[in-house]
Write a protein that binds this DNA or RNA. Sequence first.
DNA 1: GAAAAGTGTTGAGGATTCAAAACATGTCAA
DNA 2: TTGACATGTTTTGAATCCTCAACACTTTTC
Lengths: 188, 188
Amino acid sequence: MSNTANKDIELGLRLRAIRERAGLSQRALAKQADVTNSTISLIESGKMNPSVGALRRILDGIPISLSEFFAFAPDPGPTIFYAAEELTEIGKGGLSLKQVGSNLFGRDMMILKETYAIKADTGRVMYEHDGQEGGVVISGRIEITVGAQRKILGPGDAYYFDSRKSHRFRQVGPEKCVLISACTPPTF
Amino acid sequence: MSNTANKDIELGLRLRAIRERAGLSQRALAKQADVTNSTISLIESGKMNPSVGALRRILDGIPISLSEFFAFAPDPGPTIFYAAEELTEIGKGGLSLKQVGSNLFGRDMMILKETYAIKADTGRVMYEHDGQEGGVVISGRIEITVGAQRKILGPGDAYYFDSRKSHRFRQVGPEKCVLISACTPPTF
DNA sequence: GAAAAGTGTTGAGGATTCAAAACATGTCAA
DNA sequence: TTGACATGTTTTGAATCCTCAACACTTTTC
């Protein structure tokens, strides 16, 4: 028994939870996974530290990816959903910025629905702040300048850049532009 | 040598890429990870199928989580703009996930355009990962379950929650559902 | 009720992992 | 060159995984 015994148990319980959620018995899973039932039993009871290969075969039989497996866990909680009318408007001028929730508490990101009116422009002054930002254009067209690069994006196009680069957004074309963006951290 | 040899190599190359990106030698990582350098060498050259415990110790020394490790896709790119066709498709089944840029490294966020076909469902298995996620619905309707809470969202509605809560997305209604989401972190 | 088939949980043994230390390069400084 | 130190690779042996098989128990079937 090594110093990783507790980790083994944690891993075992995780496997058991997922297997049971999938409605499989140890033997049924073993058959699909090309592993013996004893292996699964030992893993689930924390008495064995499986090889990655064995675990992979087992998870393939569920099926679930290794990445998903190690990310899985059960847990419940607080304020989550926002109706369209509830998005808080923080824009000004020809630029409407609708924020998902408040930016203040314990948020790692700010998510915005941005609507640029005809010729709306974040201005000649380029913004620079810590963090990163990205988004996807929903409708209309917008010209984005990041550092020395400039591009016009249309519906479905997207962007992602480090916010420390100077950047500017400018609506172009005959139609207002809507995009969904996210930025981190939520500092202003 | 088993039938998982190619998988072993894949895993080894993955480890090597991440280790080198972290600027660590095999011995340096071995010391931090409380593993011997030979173990790392054998894994990287695909001659050994490590135990989960060993791999965990090694990744702790980098550090990177198991989930991140298995989610990592070697694909660099300082790109800023992405044409609609260039968004990388990472979904499966009735669920289309189009990612703005490709994976983890140096990114604080992942931004997705998610398209749920009729009755598409992320499944009963609930996911957990560190970080937070949020999004805005563009069209269609979707039922989102987060922990004990459940709600149906339509165009313009939004959500934001801690990713450690178990969550599930399920398309409802007669029309496919499109939403833009962001999640954090692909941390390091 | 007894047989049959299901469940998860143990031992024994061959196969594999993993640590320790040697091996094989290559680089840098004297 | 020579030595000192870095890199990744390989060998050897003890520890561990993993299979096969049997075990103990519950549920289903006749």
